[in-house]
Structure formats: C-alpha cells, structure tokens
Simulated assay, not measured.
Amino acid sequence: MSDQKFFAQPHETEWTELGPGNTRRVLIHTPELMQVEFGFEQGAVGAPHSHPHVQVSYVAEGRFEVTIDGETQVVEQGGSFIVPSGLTHGVVALTRGRLVDVFTPMRQDFV
C-alpha cells in the first residue's frame, strides 16, 4: 500500500494566519505538485514576491487585482492566472475572496 494521499477533505487541514486579512491552508501535495487555498478579506494584500515554482491560480471567490511581472489585471470568480518561475507577482483583494493555487514542484516552505 502506498503512502501517497489521493484525497483531501476540507476538515483535514488547518488554516494558517499569514497577516492582516490573509490565511492559507495546504490541501494536498506530492513532491512534484501542491494545491493550496488562500483566504483574503477585502483590501488584504498578497505582497509582491517571486519563487522558483510555477504557479497557477483559480479565483474560487471574489475579485482580485493581480500583478505579474509589472502587468496588472482584475481577475474575478471563475478566472485564472499563471505565474512562470521567478516572476514577481502579487494580489490585492478587491472583495473578500479565495484563491486556489497549484505549485510545481511543491512548496517545501509551506509544510
């Protein structure tokens, strides 16, 4: 039997407070891939940063001003964006919302 986790239920993971109006919970991961949910209160900021991981984000709820490598767009519920490795990116929550991010490889710094 494999140690690989195939399923994740929402009650299985704890939310981590990141700063004013920001929370995060790791949903599921393998060494190659990770899914993470972020919660934002209206006006909360995901400060500009970069990392070596490729990231794809899905707006599960709300509206976000998203900046990637100096280009800014508003992305609403149901929209997505992708961040290539090494590019500076950040978000501002225009409304209360949630992002579901997938990283490859996994973010070791999140576990």
Rank of each mutant, 00 (worst) to 15 (best):
T23K: 11
H89P: 05
G97I: 01
P48D: 11
L18F: 10
Q35R: 03
T13Y: 14
T13I: 07
T95N: 04
A60F: 06
Q35W: 00
L94D: 03
M1I: 12
G86D: 10
H29L: 07
E76L: 10
T13C: 06
G86C: 08
L99C: 07
Q42K: 12
G39F: 02
W15E: 13
T67V: 09
I68T: 12
P20G: 10
Q35P: 03
F40D: 03
V100R: 15
E32I: 00
F103H: 13
V75W: 02
E76T: 13
H11A: 14
P84V: 04
F103D: 08
H11W: 09
A44P: 09
T16S: 06
L99T: 11
V83Q: 08
S85K: 11
G70E: 01
I68D: 07
Y58G: 01
Q55F: 00
P52E: 02
V102A: 14
H11Y: 07
S85E: 12
F38E: 00
F6S: 10
V102R: 08
H53Q: 09
Q108S: 13
R24W: 11
A93G: 07
I68N: 07
V45K: 12
K5Q: 15
M34W: 06
H49W: 05
V74N: 04
I28S: 10
E14S: 12
T16C: 00
G46E: 04
T16Y: 10
E14H: 12
D101I: 03
G70Q: 02
V66A: 03
G43S: 07
P31G: 08
E12V: 05
L33M: 13
E71P: 02
F6V: 04
I82D: 14
V111T: 15
G97H: 04
G21W: 03
F64Q: 06
D101F: 01
F81R: 15
T23F: 01
Q42H: 05
G39C: 04
G46H: 12
A93E: 11
V45I: 15
Y58D: 03
L87K: 15
H11D: 15
T67L: 08
V92S: 04
V45Y: 14
R107P: 11
Q9A: 09
P31W: 06
I28C: 10
V75C: 04
Q35H: 05
S80T: 15
Q55C: 02
T95P: 01
D3V: 00
T88I: 12
H51F: 00
G79V: 02
E41Y: 03
Q108F: 13
H11G: 12
P52T: 01
H11L: 07
Q42A: 15
Q77A: 14
G86P: 11
V59Q: 05
G86N: 10
F38M: 05
E71N: 09
V56G: 10
G62S: 09
V102L: 11
L87M: 13
G79Q: 06
Q42W: 00
V36S: 03
E65A: 12
Q108R: 13
V92A: 03
G62I: 01
T23M: 01
G39L: 02
V59R: 04
L33T: 13
